[in-house]
Nucleic acid binder design. Structure first.
Lengths: 234, 234
DNA sequence: GTCAATAAGATTGTTGACAATACTACACGC
DNA sequence: GCGTGTAGTATTGTCAACAATCTTATTGAC
């Protein structure tokens, strides 16, 4: 109702060769993914084509395609003849995704640590890691700690020459975002996280690829264990 | 022309909850993927909606969806307003995919080696690896060596409890299938490959997760280097 | 001869209607 | 009371036509 018809063709910029405007399905997917990530659409909630198409004032075709895009990112699950629903992950599935992220983050950060021109990246990494240490002690600052962690991940992702790795990692990180947040609720956990980041950036600075890989894996695995501990509380 | 209308709803069986019949888009995607994998559709070839829809006797809707499915597996690349074409990978992209495969195969095989009930799997692995050694010496046997390697990968994939890992690995393996084959053309390379497999299965037998991981990574990286050597010849 | 503007054709994007299937509530028999 | 069959409704799947955009061939100017 509130959104109404007429989604503007706004430019955000993406991969090369692609046009600067988001296609209609991409715009719809973007709007829906905001709600899923924010939790407005809770896991398990059905997302029905007609309702979405009515809200945005488009036909069901683009909506179908938008839902397929969200499925590709794991945000919704589509069952034949039963439509889409916001993905609900079991604890085992959360663990699986974190395990994959650990392996791939290890690859990403090892390659970055072994990159001769990582010099330009380092100051920004060190900047954010320094901020992290301060924020870890004070959980009251709301999302600032988490925002900084995201910024670090964004920096490292953008520094990865392997585009496909970047795409997979972004998708997996999105799927577990909610759970990463869940695991960063306590001061102790934040200090552990900050320590892992320090270890990682130190390895990058020194060009120690293997140590960077180990640090990255440990960081994600700690994140995994913290998230699962929270999930098992309920 | 030869295919004609009326795709039968044949059952192949897939994930739980899903119906036993393949949906129309899935059937179309399956038919197209055969051709792409077999090379009938060469990299770079455009796959136009109208042509496909005419051949299979369906409207363009299901065809569009089939192409999105193939895009998800990396078999075609879709450019906005320009349609789909069979994915053409640069050497750098081939390297990227192999690097990801190495990391994830390492994860897969480490977890398998550390699995207490890997006993039932071992005889089948050892069987195939033994066959590999004999086949490596005789490149004239056509695809039998490669078939055995695929069987080994299938066994390991099916043994992985991590479903998402399985899905990602299957997709990436499919994308590089053509190049893996390319790298297995010589006797020397096959012997190297067979040696890597022996090392891997030995580690699985002994329950040495780290060694299994290292062997798996080495196996894929050797495969990568062989493929790239072939690609750079031209 | 080369380049740019333009027009014709080809192709993808979107729409609304119809078909097929799945879900829900209710009645009926045991 | 409980399970089963059935009708009605809701929802997804497919289709054919129309709109928007891109590609290609042609023409003209320099």
């Amino acid at each position: 109702m509130t959104a109404g018809a007429g989604l503007a063709r706004q430019a955000i910029g993406a991969s090369p060769g692609a046009p600067l405007t988001l296609s209609l399905p991409e715009q719809i997917a973007a709007r829906l993914s905001e709600r899923i990530i924010a939790g407005t659409y809770a896991p398990g909630r059905r997302v029905m084509e007609q309702a979405v198409s009515a809200e945005f004032g488009v036909s069901r075709g683009p909506v179908r395609e938008a839902l397929r895009l969200l499925e590709k990112d794991g945000l919704v699950t589509i069952l034949p003849r039963r439509g889409a629903q916001v993905t609900r992950l079991s604890i085992a599935e959360v663990r699986e995704i974190f395990d994959i992220r650990a392996a791939l983050n290890g690859l990403r950060d090892r390659q970055i640590a072994e990159d001769p021109d990582r010099g330009r990246l380092l100051p920004m990494l060190e900047d954010n890691v320094a901020r992290l240490a301060g924020l870890a002690r004070d959980p009251g600052e709301g999302d600032e700690y988490i925002e900084t962690v995201f910024e670090l991940n964004r920096l490292l992702n953008d520094a990865t020459p392997n585009r496909r790795l970047r795409a997979i990692l972004s998708s997996l990180a999105l799927q577990t975002l909610r759970y990463s947040r869940l695991g960063l609720a306590t001061v102790g956990r934040r200090q552990q996280s900050a320590g892992n980041w320090q270890r990682l950036v130190k390895a990058v600075r020194e060009g120690d690829g293997l140590e960077a890989q180990r640090a990255a894996e440990q960081r994600v695995l700690d994140s995994r264990d913290a998230a699962i501990r929270e999930l098992e509380k309920t």
